[in-house]
Design a protein around this nucleic acid. Structure first.
Lengths: 206, 206
DNA sequence: TCCCGCTTCAAACAATCGTTTGAATTCTAG
DNA sequence: CTAGAATTCAAACGATTGTTTGAAGCGGGA
């Protein structure tokens, strides 16, 4: 009993993640969330204070680990001395892939993440920028060292495009569907491979 | 007077487009829409029947012309006999760019379009697929002729990535901001150029 | 055992939601 | 000018929203 993995707080976060992914932040009501979590309606305001703060906690729970993995993978890729472009790209993309394979709602979360981009919500953007902006800056610096012939503006443009393609691909927005024989893991890994090769080609160009 | 460009119907569509872009379909209420449009609340249900049908009309108004332009540009690119990859890409991307430059809400609409992807709303997806799926199929066929060495699955993967990057870039999700001296048109055209070159490199790879 | 802090609960709060109504107004064709 | 259709209007509908309340239930230390 009392396993913190199934605490009221975690059950709310899990149900919120799922419903935010499927119906959006405004589209999913607290009553839907608490019903799915098998929790009393008032528990959200008791544990989180408000719906906005619940949304922030949904992000924090996943992004803390995601970005730690990304930075660790980046450090690993840079350690060898002469890192390959594909390695650095993989350091950014693979942890997101792993997250999307997490049995407990990870694939829902990447869709929530994509929604966060679509929402031009100022409060949410500032929260994400304040808490996780340094990760993007570290990767930008790494790419700058790998592609010294690209001027800064050109590099930023291309990284921006890569980030867009990644967000879109991870959230399953695309038209490509998994074939019936194929496992989810297999499908995701294939997607990451295609994405890394495509992005590497676009980044290296000229 | 009675200019159809400023009719009740069009004013509602314009206001809805703007508010859907900023707050999402669920996040923007009909009261906010009708207030912004300087129109009575009941006018939405009188002219469109329901909020869902209003959403569909917001898409139809822009997509009819967008897709007609895309198909015309594609026909132009294929007419020469030996079309370049960049031309076909431009036929797909440039009309979206032009739309995003339309003074009357075009830039809001591309953000609405991006939201449509984030919403996994079944009704909306079917509406878009039914009405505009044939455009994507025509472009896929054109790319298949241009890249005969890629097998079908590989091609679909890459087109999927391109579509994601385009959606993302057009909706201004990225971190790149327009410099103060730069005009909106200039910025958008630069974005399209980067996107076309990046996508062409990724599509041609190997 | 009793007590106290933590958590859960049913119920209600005012506000806002999409939609409907029926009368008032405006437009248009004869 | 007038009849009738098309449109706009203020008001209200029941349902649902996020949040608050105060009492009930709970578990562990004295």
């Amino acid at each position: 009993m009392n396993d913190p993995r199934f605490s009221t707080k975690q059950r709310i976060l899990g149900a919120a993640e799922d419903l935010f992914a499927r119906r959006g932040f405004a589209g999913a009501s607290l009553r839907q969330v608490t019903t799915a979590a098998k929790v009393n309606l008032a528990a959200v305001n008791y544990h989180f204070g408000s719906k906005d703060r619940l949304i922030e906690e949904v992000f924090r729970r996943r992004l803390d680990e995601l970005n730690a993995r990304r930075l660790a993978a980046l450090k690993g890729a840079m350690a060898g001395g002469n890192p390959q472009l594909a390695e650095v790209l993989a350091a950014f993309i693979k942890p997101a892939l792993d997250l999307s394979l997490d049995r407990e709602g990870g694939s829902a979360f990447v869709r929530v993440l994509a929604r966060a981009y679509a929402e031009h919500n100022e409060r949410l953007r500032r929260f994400l920028s304040d808490n996780y902006g340094h990760v993007l800056r570290e990767f930008a610096a790494a790419f700058a060292r790998l592609l010294p012939r690209l001027d800064k503006e050109e590099l930023y443009w291309r990284l921006d495009i890569v980030a867009g393609a990644l967000t879109y691909a991870m959230a399953d927005f695309g038209v490509i569907k998994r074939r019936s024989g194929q496992s989810e893991r297999d499908f995701r890994e294939r997607a990451a491979e295609h994405l890394i090769r495509f992005a590497a080609a676009g980044l290296k160009e000229e």
